[in-house]
Simulated assay, not measured.
Amino acid sequence: MASIIIHTDNKKDISLLKELAEKMGLSSHILSKEEKEDVNFAELMKQNNETDNMLKEDALEYYRNLKKK
């Protein structure tokens, strides 16, 4: 199954696209704010390069040093 995401703030456009999908026999779903955030978060996770991440030990050391200042 393939999917498409179309972004618009215009409620008329959303209604028109949903109606068009239904007339074409396609299923459609309008994403809630939370669902949109989940999609964006998933995309960011895909783009994450693990080699850019700090080791847990280094992160703990960094935060311990912040408390001392």
Score class of each variant (00 low, 15 high):
Ile30Tyr: 07
Ile30Gly: 02
Ile30Ala: 09
Leu31Pro: 09
Leu31Thr: 12
Leu31Ala: 13
Ser32Met: 04
Ser32Arg: 08
Lys33Glu: 15
Lys33Val: 07
Lys33Thr: 08
Lys33Arg: 14
Glu35Asn: 05
Glu35Leu: 03
Lys36Ala: 11
Lys36Met: 14
Lys36Pro: 02
Glu37Leu: 14
Glu37Ile: 05
Glu37Gln: 14
Glu37Thr: 12
Asp38Lys: 07
Asp38Leu: 14
Asp38Arg: 03
Asp38Tyr: 04
Val39Gly: 00
Asn40Pro: 01
Asn40Thr: 06
Asn40Asp: 12
Phe41Lys: 14
Phe41Ala: 09
Ala42Gly: 03
Glu43Pro: 00
Leu44Phe: 05
Met45Gln: 12
Met45Ile: 15
Lys46Tyr: 11
Lys46Arg: 13
Lys46Phe: 06
Lys46Ser: 04
Gln47Arg: 15
Gln47Val: 02
Gln47Lys: 15
Asn49Ala: 06
Asn49Cys: 04
Asn49Ile: 07
Glu50Trp: 03
Thr51Phe: 10
Asp52Gly: 00
Asp52Ser: 04
Asn53Ala: 08
Asn53Trp: 07
Met54Ala: 02
Met54Glu: 06
Met54Leu: 15
Leu55Glu: 10
Leu55Asp: 05
Lys56Gln: 07
Lys56Gly: 01
Lys56Ile: 10
Glu57Tyr: 03
Ala59Thr: 02
Leu60Arg: 02
Glu61His: 00
Tyr63Ser: 00
Tyr63Ile: 15
Tyr63Gly: 01
